[in-house]
Design a protein around this nucleic acid. Sequence first.
DNA 1: CTGAAAGCGCTTACAG
DNA 2: CTGAAAGCGCTTACAG
Lengths: 339, 339
Amino acid sequence: MRVTLKDIADEAGVSIMTVSNVVNGNRARVSAETIERIQRIVAARGYVPSASARSLAAKSSRMIGLLVPAADEDSLMISPHNVAILGQIERQLRKSGYHLLLRGIAQPSEVGEALKSWSLDGAVLLGFLDEDVDRLTPGAVGNVSLLAVDSYSDNPLTTGVRSDDYTGALLAARHLIGLGHREIVFAGPAFTGAGVVHQRYAGFRAAFTEAGLTWTERVITVETTTHSTGRNLGRRIPTEHPEATAAFATADILAIGIMEGLNDTGHAVPEDLSVIGFDNLDLSEYVTPKLTTVAQDIPQKAALAVERLLATIEKQEHPDSPITLDVQLIERASTGPAR
Amino acid sequence: MRVTLKDIADEAGVSIMTVSNVVNGNRARVSAETIERIQRIVAARGYVPSASARSLAAKSSRMIGLLVPAADEDSLMISPHNVAILGQIERQLRKSGYHLLLRGIAQPSEVGEALKSWSLDGAVLLGFLDEDVDRLTPGAVGNVSLLAVDSYSDNPLTTGVRSDDYTGALLAARHLIGLGHREIVFAGPAFTGAGVVHQRYAGFRAAFTEAGLTWTERVITVETTTHSTGRNLGRRIPTEHPEATAAFATADILAIGIMEGLNDTGHAVPEDLSVIGFDNLDLSEYVTPKLTTVAQDIPQKAALAVERLLATIEKQEHPDSPITLDVQLIERASTGPAR
DNA sequence: CTGAAAGCGCTTACAG
DNA sequence: CTGAAAGCGCTTACAG
């Protein structure tokens, strides 16, 4: 049925070892003419090595897991931001001769199972909360290299790759303060003393401190970072925070929802309320008014993540310090002078 | 290092075969007390079967490929529509005990390689053009079950799952005609005598026929179905087709770009030009004005795709006729009476 | 109900 | 430069 190393070896009149060496590019160990003859046969027969057999015999599967949180009964909810990351990761992995296993994780225990089942060489954790990353144990992870995107977890089993969330929020708040805003709502998911949202919160507050101002605490917490929760928020902000002249949202999709909610209740952006987001999704340019936001370099984030992961795997390098990428303020039409 | 069948067998004082039977749920062949004892040990030791070994020994890998086109140097571009499909497919597969290999395909030959390398049990083709699906040969595919999403290809190696594109476009055009529009632009990718776009074109034209009208041919072809090409279109339509009072776009993202381009040049939607899309992306509700469009049942499309694929694999059923799903017109604010 | 043997398609030392 | 042997962790008939 399937063409195997043995088939090629028989046809070439050599041992399977020699064919294996050729297929794997160990050219130093085989004569030039043999190499050429074998390569011809390989091409003619359409031989493709069995990854399972290779994985079983060698220590390496050349397969990387992309682990994404999934509520048990739900389908994978992949945000536009994470779609971009995913696309880049797949590409980089493919270019490097690795395969990608995409797996939704409903329960913490599934991480270990996912890793062991296919003997993954490494995995990227995409979209996990820091508290979940913290909880990963050596028993579950084994010696698999783990890279957590957008994580500030101190778990030594993982390396973090993230944007400079602190500076991003600082830039955003500075921009609003510069426009004369003083009463600003901070809208985002609940956060603790660590993690992406906390970093953004800290950067946001730092802008007030550096300007010698005191921020009137106006935090609004959302359950989910979606357009619809944002929209609800937008409807509530004018009544719940009548003094507020601006809103900082921790994600574009939330900010866009807020603008929609404001519009629903007859409030104008930015005249009545300036709105600023975070991510710089394509979408932020499609809406009216176009969203002022903080841009992350998503392709670079993904590229560095994979590069770092493969280095750890192939060179047995110890995962070094986390990587933090630069961010940039993108001024568009959703922010204006305070009223 | 890794916990194996043999470790469990030794600890339980039975043969590895017995452990294998327990792990695989062949309970009929093992006594109740042995089952319980083995299960206890399996849990305690955290045993996870080696998928590679299983794949090698058995005929089945229990792994399904999700193949997505990728320009060689580009990252995977996954449309919002396909993200939703992907998320559903992963979930269904996971629930059914399958794993998902995500793979970008830059060249046709890579399909065969992807299939063979991990001995995939089946694969879903997502986002391929019919002409690429047509070109798949038995040699490359082998006996792997292939399911093509949004395909009208007649290639017997694949089964198609798609929405009722013909009716969708028919409903859209009927809606516009009902509003008094007669001069309508049809904007979409180039198409031949088959495929999704052709179906939509045919349905679009049928609406004119059934109304006893003749459609003045106004086809605008785009290279890529993106917001930016749509935007360019929107800028050109008023000058290139001054008589047109409406535009039908084969995708929401294109329609939204068209609206943006019209807005750029000072044209109002729907007052100057009605715009209708296709897909009903979340996005179509976020833009101003909200987009009138044709909704597909994406979760159902994905669910049926996986169900059909697994049936073919597990029951050795022959892939039967393609599946076509119902569509629905969603009237929102981007369409209005002809001026 | 339970097990010994062969084999899936590779790679890894080890010899020559 | 080339190869024979052992083994990776399973499953599949086949016996008992």
